[in-house]
Structures are given as structure tokens and as C-alpha cells.
Amino acid sequence: MTEPKQSSSSVPGPYKWEMAIDLDRCTGCEACVVACHAENNIRISGEQEAAEGRAINWIRIERYWEGEYPDVTVKFMPVLCQQCGDAPCEPVCPVYASYHTPDGLNAQVYNRCIGVRYCGNNCPYTVRQFNWFDPHWDPPLQEQLNPDVTVRQNGIMEKCTFCVQRIREKKELAEKEGRRVRDGEIAPACVQSCPTSALVFGDRNDPDSQVSKLARQDRGFHLLESLGTHPAITYLKRIT
């Protein structure tokens, strides 16, 4: 990973991609879920696979009921790979298929993975999905597959990559123009499509980026913070 040339903007050093999710804005409309399926060649898991609990969603909306009828409330929680700072899935992989990139992302190398699945166990957020069978698209649905994203075969662990193909594309563009990536220039598919703008993505090393401002809010908390995984996603508490 070559370091970006010293660009005009004040913030030196590598990027640290992070996301802020405002639970007060999130309505659970699942636009992000389908946007992610379209962008990242996620397989179509039919009814049988979903019944076996093997539907693959890189981002899912967790719904929690609270209370009894009639004063019952619902909490929606979009959960995706938290790109942890100290990811519990990295030390346990015997082939370095799960490793940490200098950009602060937790990357999954499909070709190295031999399907031991320890990373899936050790992830406290259960966001790692596994390809139990080869994916299948009835023609002509495969015309829609995104050539920038590898189509995974069976026996491979996969997870949200923060749309790394978009990050890399814009980083190369910025590098070509000799500048740093602007705040908001990179938007993963879910961030881009979220109608209520609940999801915000950006470089946390840049103090005045949108995600840094949101992450500093006192409503901010991290999922399962006590485990010390230092997730890269800050949730903003819903005000009830």
C-alpha cells in the first residue's frame, strides 16, 4: 500500500475509514440491505437456504421488541462488519485470510481462505457469512454482476468490506490528482442509498470530516464496547 503523496489538505498520514450510524434516523427500511446485494454480487439465497439460516446479508437490520402490548416499542439496529481496530477474527485465522489493512479495514482475502470458519465463531457480532454452496444466478441475472467485485465460490468466508472497490477507485483517483480523498467523496452502497442519511462514512483521521463530528457526539457508543474490539462504527443512540 503506497502512502498517498503529501497532499494539500492538512491531515497527514494514512486514512482510517469509519462509519457513524444514527439510530434516531434509521427507520429499518432495508434500502441499504438491497443496495449492498446489488453492489457486491451477493448470492440470491432461496427460501430453502434462508430456512436453514444461511441467507447472506453483509448488512442486516436487527429488530428488537421491548415491552408488552400495548406499550411495546421496536428498536432497529443496522449491523455490519464493524471493521474492528483489534479484530478478534484476525489472530485466529490460520492462513491470514482475515487481516488488517493499513487503511484501518478488516480485509478478507478470498483466495487464501480454506473455510476453517474460526473467524465466524470468534466474531462477537456474527457478521461473518459463509458460502455453503456455489452461488447460482438464473441467466440473464448474471449480466448484472459487478466486475469489480469477486464472485465468491463455496467454502469461502465473506463479509462487508465497506465497498472496498469504491474506496480503492476514489483513492486512486485522488492519488492521480495529487490530493487527499475529500470528505463524502467515498460512499459505500448503503451509505449512498440510505434515505434518512442515517449512515455516514468518512476518514476518522480527518478531525473535521462528517463522521468524526458525529462520532464525537455524546450520543455515540460502540457495539459490544466492553470486548475491547475497538469497532470502526459509532452508533448514535436513539432518543426515546
Partner: peptide, 15 residues
Amino acid sequence: QTGIGQTNMHPPIFW
């Protein structure tokens, strides 16, 4: 041949 999906393992039970 067909994939390890022949087992009944699924997230969260990988082992």
C-alpha cells in the same frame, strides 16, 4: 463435490 452446505451448519453455529 456439492459444497459443505450438505451439513446443517449455519451462522452462528460454524463448528
